[in-house]
Simulated assay, not measured.
Amino acid sequence: MAAWILETLTELLTSAGVFLGFVFFLYFLQVLACGLAMRQFGGKGIYLSAIVGTPVHEISHAVMCLPFRHKIDEISLFKPDGSGTLGYVTHSYNPSSLWQEIGNFFIGAAPLFGGTATIYLLTSLLLPNSQEIFQTIQASVETYVSVSGVISFFTALYAALSDLASVLFVTAKAEPLRFALWAYLTASVSLHLSPSPVDMKGSVKGFILLVLVIAGLRYISYSTGEALFDHLDGIFLSLSVTYSLCILLAAGMALIFFVLSLISPKEQGN
């Protein structure tokens, strides 16, 4: 059984490889952009994006509590405390329930999916050529299918970002005000889309149990397990190409903060 567990873990990490690459890169941009904002505008500089991104982040946690039957004890969509906490969701559950324990993993990772859904919604509502943007993202799927190494990954990333930038540039010229509003809102969501260290810590046990359940399923019915992995491959790939857009927006906001730090004096204190 140990071999099945190890193989299942390897399969999961392989399926999510490109997706995890995007998540880590996006987290790097989040740290960079927020650090530049705080250095330029003081400790409250992070509020420029957090006032939009944090509520989406916390709502994602709260919504994911529902299917796993976790009780939401308290929720604060945006309540900075000066120590790094911008918002929070506290929830309780029955630790003897396998379903609720596994739910901790999905609750912790929920902003990755809730943030993506929010970006799709904002794009549909605010940009007249949203369908063209979605088609450009989807067209990148085939590119990432062949990714097998670091060089291939960044080559595919560059191509995807270039295609997206071209489509977005057309929109920016045609509808500059709507584009600016969309860019600010979606960049703010992107910068607070990654799970926090606290989220990841709370997800560890749930992830371990999830791996054990999938390994057991594959042990009982190998064909069912493989069908599950095929389905997961498609989900991870679709999320990955969507994150190309998130990366482009987050990088854009980081660049704005960097330029501001060069052309204007820094604020002192908070």
Rank of each mutant, 00 (worst) to 15 (best):
S83T: 14
G84L: 05
G84I: 04
T85G: 10
T85D: 14
T85F: 14
T85R: 15
G87L: 10
G87H: 10
Y88W: 12
Y88R: 11
Y88D: 13
V89Q: 08
T90C: 05
T90N: 07
T90P: 00
H91L: 03
H91Q: 06
H91T: 02
H91V: 01
S92R: 14
S92T: 12
Y93D: 06
Y93S: 09
Y93T: 12
N94M: 10
N94W: 09
N94R: 14
S96I: 15
S96K: 15
L98P: 05
L98W: 07
L98H: 03
W99L: 13
W99G: 06
Q100G: 01
Q100W: 03
Q100T: 05
E101A: 06
I102V: 12
I102E: 06
I102R: 14
G103Q: 01
G103W: 00
N104Y: 04
F105D: 04
F105Q: 07
F106W: 05
F106V: 00
I107P: 00
I107R: 09
I107G: 04
I107M: 03
G108N: 12
G108D: 08
A109L: 15
A109F: 13
A109C: 12
A110W: 00
A110V: 00
A110L: 00
P111L: 04
P111F: 06
F113M: 10
F113C: 06
G115L: 09
A117I: 15
A117V: 15
A117Q: 07
T118K: 11
T118N: 09
I119L: 09
I119N: 02
I119H: 04
Y120V: 15
Y120L: 15
Y120A: 13
L122S: 03
L122T: 00
L122G: 02
T123E: 02
T123D: 07
S124Y: 11
S124R: 09
L125S: 04
L125P: 01
L125E: 01
L125H: 00
L126D: 03
L126R: 07
L127C: 02
L127S: 03
